[in-house]
């Protein structure tokens, strides 16, 4: 089943295209690494898929429905890009933030009950931040906050998870541990993941599919194909492609 289908998508601001000719489909259970250089439109693409940016042309389907008609937001989890200034001074506790991830799909007036509290407990445990539950969000480090937002995205047990540079604030060990966690969610829970990152090499070890964009689609396929692609050699140059691909010891290769 196609969980996400993008066809000839163009996105822009003030009539100027920043992204064009993007087409790909994502089957259920896939782990897609969305890769590209700075300013290549990775975040814009994710935001367009989620309806945060209007598209100039093309179509987006989520779970078989045009995005404009899609309303089952509880089936989607989203970890936005964070910066140091985000949420400064905001008084909410980690538990309150994570619990807010349970609101999608609830009828008006949206209420959180006991079952939601238990789901919060479970996800705090899964993401290993139970001791932080009572802490204020702005008292946490970047890496801790990243885990909180991952917990918020996971707490409704979504089928499709978007993560925008979730490893940006993490040290190498925390980064590895996050990748392992995402891989487990992907493999054991059969959840579909779309992860934006700069790190083509590392994502290649975990993702089953790579989408490389640079304001247009450069490559869409498996990491192995990516490494063997003559088009990518032409794009990167042989040396750079080798640097990206030499760590091809895929983790838990299917």
């Amino acid at each position: 089943m196609k969980i996400l289908a993008v066809e000839d998508l163009a996105v822009g601001y003030g009539g100027v295209e920043v992204l064009s000719g993007i087409s790909f489909t994502l089957p259920a259970g896939d782990f897609l690494g969305l890769v590209g250089p700075n300013g290549s439109g990775k975040t814009t693409l994710v935001r367009a898929v989620l309806g945060l940016e209007p598209s100039l042309r093309g179509t987006i389907e989520l779970f078989g429905r045009p995005r404009e008609e899609f309303r089952q937001w509880q089936r989607i989890g989203y970890v936005p890009q964070i910066s140091g200034s985000n949420h400064r001074g905001f008084p909410a506790s980690v538990r309150e933030i994570v619990a807010s991830g349970r609101l999608a799909g609830k009828p008006f007036p949206r209420r959180l009950g006991r079952e939601d509290g238990l789901a919060v407990d479970r996800v705090l445990d899964l993401v290993q931040i139970t001791p932080l539950a009572g802490r204020k969000i702005d008292s946490l480090s970047g890496g801790q906050r990243q885990r909180v937002f991952l917990a918020r995205a996971l707490v409704a047990d979504p089928e499709l998870l978007f993560l925008d540079e979730p490893t940006a604030a993490l040290d190498p060990s925390a980064r590895e541990s996050l990748y392992e966690l995402l891989l487990a969610i992907n493999r054991e829970r059969q959840r579909t993941i779309v992860m934006v990152t700069h790190d083509s090499g590392t994502i290649g070890r975990y993702a089953s599919t790579l989408l490389y964009i640079d304001r247009r689609l450069i490559f869409f396929g498996s990491f192995e194909d990516f490494c063997g692609s003559a088009a990518m050699t032409g794009y990167f140059g042989g040396h750079a492609q080798h640097l990206i691909c030499h760590r091809h010891d895929r983790v838990g290769k299917r």
């Binding site: 989607i76 989203y78 936005p80 985000n86 905001f90 309150e96 807010s100 991830g101 209420r111």
Partner: peptide, 22 residues
């Protein structure tokens, strides 16, 4: 009171709130 959670999630992160269908 009726909109408490919607006001909260919108105050914290408006774009995330939109992705949740708020």
């Amino acid at each position: 009171v009726l909109l408490y959670h919607d006001l909260f999630v919108t105050a914290f992160e408006e774009e995330y709130a939109r992705v949740q269908g708020t």
